[in-house]
Write a protein that binds this DNA or RNA. Structure first.
Ligand SMILES: [Mn+2]
Ligand SMILES: [Mn+2]
Ligand SMILES: [Zn+2]
Ligand SMILES: [Zn+2]
Lengths: 161, 161
DNA sequence: TTCTTTATTGATAACGGTTATCATTATCAA
DNA sequence: TTGATAATGATAACCGTTATCAATAAAGAA
């Protein structure tokens, strides 16, 4: 029996029910700034919800994504992660800085104005050129974070041969 | 016994051998502008190379990627595709326009100058802010291509219930 | 509150793309 | 031509995700 919650209403109007697993998963994501995978979410919740199934995590993440309460991102290596979407009032749109050493993800929002202008121009041009209806875009930078960059100079574990 | 070829030299210096499968796969990718998946490559080559194994396709694609002869891209849905990289002389760098209806990919290279400037600025700023060493970036637009956009208004196959 | 309906759950099996294993084959320098 | 060994292909294993289905629980009705 999940307790009443500010999100409950959004579910009622959606032909869906406000359940324990949904409360747990949405609660977790709303409290972290991490970009978590399904399995990470499953593991994090194990102590408090030892009988939650991984299948339910996938299903719930899918539902929450369709409801636009969370955002799904696919990394360059194919991994899928999820992040909570802050309310419509605060502009949640941002891009990612991804460390190829440790897969850590950093949010950034630089040069919003200039970027927006360029995006708009590009969109218009591409629409004309290809007769393409653009719905969304994705921008990401890859590299090495502070920590991983240092580790380059440290000894790597010996290779067994 | 694969025949001599302009790429052969690159292999010899690489502690690797110039083989039939490698000639076939590199040949195919160099002749198409498509962004192909491993299985698509495997199927395309089946007629001429009926005993080529899918495993070899994966291994070869990995090698060619490490040799920077081809480029691997991961779509938003996790699919992996490969495209031939034109020589270093012609600037191969470009971005993608991806149709979420049919997964078709369009290359584009718009506003190179402006984009480059913005990218540079963003990179510098992010490097300062996060002490991050940026190595690469990825920009892609999602939407519906000409054809898929039209199909929205056509009848969808009846759902069985 | 209790009842009824049915959406949701979790265990399990299945799936699809990719990788590991290993005996066989083919490349290429000597 | 030959020998060392890199490369191949059949097969099994792997891993993230999805399908199936009987059991459970949310929420409106009584
Ligand atoms: Mn983010
Ligand atoms: Mn391309
Ligand atoms: Zn890192
Ligand atoms: Zn399309």
């Amino acid at each position: 029996m999940p307790r009443p919650h500010k999100w409950q209403l959004r579910f009622q109007g959606h032909v869906s029910r406000w359940t324990g697993p949904r409360e747990a998963i949405l609660g977790l994501l709303s409290k972290t700034s991490k970009h978590m995978s399904a399995k990470e979410i499953y593991s994090s919740l194990y102590k408090k919800h030892p009988n939650l199934g991984l299948t339910t995590v996938y299903r719930t993440l899918d539902l929450l994504t369709r409801m636009s309460l969370i955002h799904k991102i696919t990394l360059g290596n194919g991994q899928r992660r999820f992040e909570f979407k802050k309310g419509e009032k605060t502009d949640h749109h941002h891009h990612h800085l991804i460390c190829t050493g440790c897969d850590k993800i950093f949010d950034y929002k630089e040069f919003e104005e200039e970027e927006l202008i360029l995006i708009k121009k590009t969109e218009e041009s591409l629409t004309r050129k290809f007769n393409f209806k653009i719905m969304d875009h994705n921008i990401e930078f890859y590299g090495l974070c502070d920590k991983c960059n240092l580790n380059i100079y440290k000894n790597k574990p010996k290779e067994i041969r």
